[in-house]
Amino acid sequence: MPFKYAATAALVAVTAMPLAASADEVNIYSYRQANLLEPLLDAFTEETGIETNVVFAKKGLAERLEREGRNSPADVVMTVDISRLNELVERGLTQAVDNEVMEANIPENLRHPDGKWFALTTRGRMIYASVDRVEEGEITTYEELADPKWEGRICTRSGKHPYNIALFSSMIAHHGEEEAEAWLTGLKNNLARKPQGGDRDQIKAIAEGVCDLSIGNSYYYGKMLNDDNQRAAAEAVRIVFPNSDGRGTHINISGIALTNSAPNQENAIRLMEFLSQEKAQQIYAEANTEYPANPSVEPSGMVAGWGELHPDSLSLQEIAERRNAAVRMVDRVDYDN
């Protein structure tokens, strides 16, 4: 099988196979686990004959690219959220891609204005509500999470996590910092416990009766429904698409960026084009229970069955630019404590 990968857990312990330029390969640094990319990259190799090599890390890839500089073997970086994409851009580690295929397949609000990153899939930042303790339609917006009626009834992961920072950044973009901070203070006042765990842990907490509402990415819900050990917890919650009747549900993305070094640049751009097209979009979105970034591709049957996603049309670049303000806001309200 042409797909090859090496994994690393931290910046100080990066160990991977030697990667080098070749006429028939492309080298990928990935924040998304390599096994999740395998069917996608196998399809690319089958179609093009270009082999793929993947280095996976949970963190530290931007620092690694900086150390390697122009000698880096990496052609592209694949990430799991807008914050990491924006970090690559801010550090000057990506180059612009002016490509008609990418621009035709990926909507303007889901790509960098200068082509320095492109979304591949999207996911909604949903509200999960207890089936037993929250009436259908009782909560429909993010803003309502600050309503005192929910005091002691909400669970979330850390406010500093990139997924929450992106949501808080979008609240700043829509409401301004003062109003967004008042909202975040209200949300904190409604927490049932100190922020902890991941998105799946919040769903489990609802199932256990610790809280009645939580915030989480839509794909975690799908993964839990597909897991025999977690399905019961997932079935204890109802998925809510916040702000569907207004500005739309906040979305985050998985995405891709072309590195400055890119020794296999032509192959890398072919990969980017492939990933934006219908075949790959269907494979990638279905494998991860996400939504295709290409609007001409329908979501998989399970995801479609949750209801129609009306995404917030706000540019993700605009959200990314408010990240630092959101982090400061989380500190000011002492959200995690």
Rank of each mutant, 00 (worst) to 15 (best):
R231H: 13
E177H: 06
Q230Y: 12
Y5Q: 05
A293W: 00
E177T: 11
R32K: 07
V55I: 03
V89Y: 02
V89T: 10
P263S: 07
I319V: 15
G216D: 05
D228G: 12
V76Q: 01
K4W: 09
R123M: 13
A325E: 15
G115R: 05
Y284H: 09
D199H: 12
I165T: 10
T94N: 01
Y219C: 07
A10L: 12
L93Q: 05
V97P: 00
H174Q: 13
I165M: 06
Q202P: 00
P263G: 02
G301L: 11
D132Y: 07
R332D: 12
N288P: 06
Q281A: 15
N164E: 10
V330Q: 04
M272P: 05
Y5S: 11
L167C: 04
N190F: 11
A326W: 01
L120G: 04
A233M: 07
L316V: 00
A20Q: 14
M272C: 05
P18M: 11
V97R: 01
Q196G: 09
Y31T: 00
L258Y: 01
K116S: 00
L85K: 04
F241H: 12
A232Q: 09
D312S: 13
T289E: 13
A205F: 04
E178K: 06
N35G: 08
N260A: 07
A146Q: 13
S72F: 03
M17A: 15
V26F: 06
Q196S: 11
P292N: 05
L225S: 08
G198E: 06
L314Q: 15
V330E: 04
L11A: 11
D114M: 10
T8Y: 08
S214Y: 01
G216H: 02
N86M: 09
G115K: 07
E179K: 09
F241G: 08
N252T: 14
N229E: 15
E235F: 05
L213Y: 02
E90S: 14
V240N: 08
A205Q: 06
E151I: 12
D42S: 14
H310M: 13
H112I: 11
I154D: 02
A262N: 03
Q277Y: 10
E103S: 13
E138D: 15
N288F: 10
V131K: 07
C211H: 01
G216Y: 00
G159H: 06
P18Y: 11
P162A: 11
S244R: 08
S244Q: 14
I319M: 12
T185E: 15
S130P: 01
N229A: 15
I256K: 02
S313Q: 15
M329C: 06
M171H: 02
S214F: 09
M126R: 06
S254M: 09
N267S: 11
A232K: 10
Q33D: 13
H112M: 12
D147I: 13
V89A: 04
E208W: 04
G246H: 02
R123F: 14
K116V: 00
L258I: 05
N35K: 13
P18K: 14
D334M: 07
